[in-house]
Design a protein around this nucleic acid. Structure first.
Length: 310
DNA sequence: AAGACGAAAGTGGTTGA
DNA sequence: TCAACAACTTTCGTCTT
């Protein structure tokens, strides 16, 4: 979002009334600089890259073509030979010739290109439904293209590869969506997506760092409508947990969920395990296990007791 | 009656021989 | 390729609020 647009919006934080609001173009989130509350997420950036106020400026500025984009099957660089509508102007003989040329031009696209073309159309739809940022979508498209070129799509459904690419792209940009969220939008099994995701990562040598629980906390906290105080408490808990090395090897979402559950308790904003489990996409049991661990390792047991006695 | 807790059995993935 | 293994889920019974 441009500075101008942000100034126009002039939002105030609903929790602390601060106007100190930042836009993070990387994650597409609007964050309160004072208390850390995520005010809006998945913001779409409408601002143009360049602007013109009259025709002269427009001409002056017209020194570039459309941006290169991986979301177009040809990266947005190929030429097109006229459409059927243009053919009316031609004589009968030339029209037939032109038709043949068009046909051949389209056939010259390799099978891979055709596959990518179809896939990107699907991808566009899904990433729209998931409210993905443009950079993430680009990344996903890039991954798919690579996968297609390596022939990894063969033997797999196109959708699953699309979903896998999207999931990977989200992780790369530290904007993780859960597998559940993706499998909900695309009618595919969660496991299937995970499988293809791992497969393409291995084949393409994409190295993705394990997600950190803190990546999820902000989003989950917002969904649970927790106060900023509780949210930052949860992050604090996670920091401590990291120091004590109880984070590694465990599912990050489970830990994030447990930290949120604890912080909600401590801040007198009790949420049931069920509620937390639902937004985090884990079960209550997992929360209980992580919860127990966190209490033991971080000496929070007494704090919790005190709260419960009240 | 709802929520929290824990035990036991099952699932899918990773790892190491 | 197979068995062992860790993490997580499902299910169910019991206790607490």
């Amino acid at each position: 979002m441009s500075k101008l647009a942000l100034k126009k919006a002039q939002k105030t934080c609903p929790s602390c009334n601060s106007t100190n609001i930042h836009y993070d173009p990387h994650t597409g989130e609007m964050i309160c600089g004072t208390c850390g509350e995520v005010i809006e997420e998945n913001i779409i950036d409408f601002s143009p890259e360049w602007r013109a106020f009259n025709s002269e400026q427009m001409n002056n500025n017209r020194r570039v073509g459309s941006p290169i984009t991986y979301t177009r099957p040809d990266i947005g660089t190929s030429t097109k030979i006229g459409s059927a509508g243009d053919l009316v102007k031609l004589s009968n003989k030339n029209r037939q010739k032109a038709k043949r040329i068009i046909t051949w031009n389209e056939r010259s696209n390799s099978p891979t290109e055709r596959n990518v073309k179809n896939a990107l159309r699907d991808m566009k739809r899904i990433s729209g439904q998931l409210n993905l940022k443009q950079i993430v979508e680009e990344e996903a498209a890039k991954i798919y293209r690579k996968a297609a070129e390596k022939g990894l799509v063969r033997g797999r459904s196109m959708e699953s590869v699309v979903a896998g690419a999207i999931y990977a792209a989200c992780r790369i940009h530290n904007n993780p969506r859960t597998l559940d969220e993706i499998s909900e939008k695309i009618a595919l099994d969660k496991k299937e997506i995970g499988k293809t995701y791992r497969f393409i990562c291995r084949q393409l040598n994409i190295r993705i760092l394990p997600t950190s629980p803190t990546d999820y906390v902000l989003r989950f906290a917002s969904e649970l409508k927790l106060s900023p105080k509780a949210t930052s408490k949860a992050i604090e808990i996670l920091e401590k947990a990291k120091e004590k090395e109880i984070v590694s090897g465990k599912g990050p979402m489970g830990i994030a969920a447990a930290a949120l559950y604890i912080s909600a308790l401590l801040c007198d904003e009790r949420r049931t395990q069920r509620e937390v489990a639902d937004v985090a996409g884990v079960t209550e049991v997992t929360i209980r296990n992580r919860y127990k661990e966190l209490l033991e390792k971080l000496d929070l047991g007494e704090d919790i007791k005190k709260i419960k006695e009240k």
